[in-house]
Design a protein around this nucleic acid. Structure first.
Length: 283
DNA sequence: AGTTCCCTGAGG
DNA sequence: CCTCAGGGAACT
């Protein structure tokens, strides 16, 4: 569920907390969440300091000053929590990093916890120049906010399929998941099952504009907090208050009052307004 | 492009 | 108790 806006919100707060800090220890409680070949190399990060925190799609990259990178993909239920009280640790805490106090500020020792109820998330440790070969990144296309209109439309049109299926395909472009795919398609007035080959020039323009508008607005709101999703410091995002279509099947459309439909596309629940999102018109 | 798997909490 | 959701890989 953390998608591009949630991961970008995380990236910003991690960058604030971590850059310049030295990793003093790593405790692995569930080896399973580390990729196989990184498990025995994890000690390579001890003593290194964090130089930067980057993001591609839904993947976080914690860059270290020893030419190593820690890649983290949270999948469904992964969470990164800053200074989680040790007393509230439960069976879902899988990795704990500690950071030594910075020399100048006299900070206390801080910790970053990786907690993941379903254990779908993955963490990898790679050499910086080989990060794109990690099992977490090797299939990912470019970050969807990094492409221009030309590239965007070329990539979409290269797949002859249902538009929502293509938006969810991280190989085409990375970052959009089920929530934002539904919100973007509603905003653009495009049916989730519209064939990419049938998109008009105007439809493609709208799709590009809506993708940027929705994702950028969601980032401004600190992402969406649904179910138990919270950010590193425990605060919630606010974009869920602006959801107009996601998980609203059976309710009425805010724009036209029609009953919102719920169908499956690519195995994912998809809500759309049958009046605002015409399949035949493709926008 | 559909299915299965991973995994667990939530809801019926 | 049973069923389902869901990101992504792997398989068909």
């Amino acid at each position: 569920m953390p998608e591009l806006p949630e991961v970008e919100t995380l990236r910003r707060s991690l960058a604030r907390h971590l850059v310049g800090r030295i990793i003093s220890s790593v405790t692995i409680l569930a080896p399973h969440v580390l990729t196989k070949d990184s498990r025995h190399r994890i000690s390579q990060i001890i003593g290194a300091s964090v130089s930067d925190v980057n993001r591609t799609g839904k993947c976080l990259a914690i860059e270290l000053n020893n030419d190593r990178t820690v890649l983290i993909h949270l999948r469904m239920t992964g969470r990164l929590l800053w200074n989680m009280p040790a007393g509230s640790f439960d069976g879902h805490v899988h990795v704990v990093w500690t950071f030594s106090p910075s020399a100048d500020a006299g900070d206390p020792e801080d910790s970053l916890v990786y907690r993941d109820v379903r254990k779908f998330g993955r963490i990898d440790l790679v050499e910086k120049h080989a990060a794109h070969q990690s099992s977490i990144l090797q299939r990912a296309g470019p970050d969807i906010l990094s492409v221009d209109f030309e590239d965007f439309s070329t990539r979409i049109r290269a797949r002859r399929s249902q538009i929502k299926y293509v938006l969810l395909d991280q190989q085409v472009m990375a970052g959009v998941g089920n929530i934002y795919a539904d919100e973007i398609l509603f905003d653009a007035g495009i049916h989730p099952r519209a064939r990419t080959a049938n998109l008009t020039a105007d439809g493609m323009q709208k799709l590009y504009a809506s993708t940027r508008r929705i994702l950028e607005k969601a980032i401004e709101c600190g992402g969406s907090s649904i179910r138990d999703y919270i950010h590193t410091d425990g605060e919630a995002g606010r974009f869920q208050e602006q959801h107009r279509i996601y998980q609203r099947g059976g309710e009425t459309c805010f724009l036209c009052g029609a009953v919102i439909q719920s169908i499956k596309v690519g195995g994912r629940t998809s809500s759309f307004c049958p009046r605002c999102q015409r399949r035949s018109k493709a926008a």
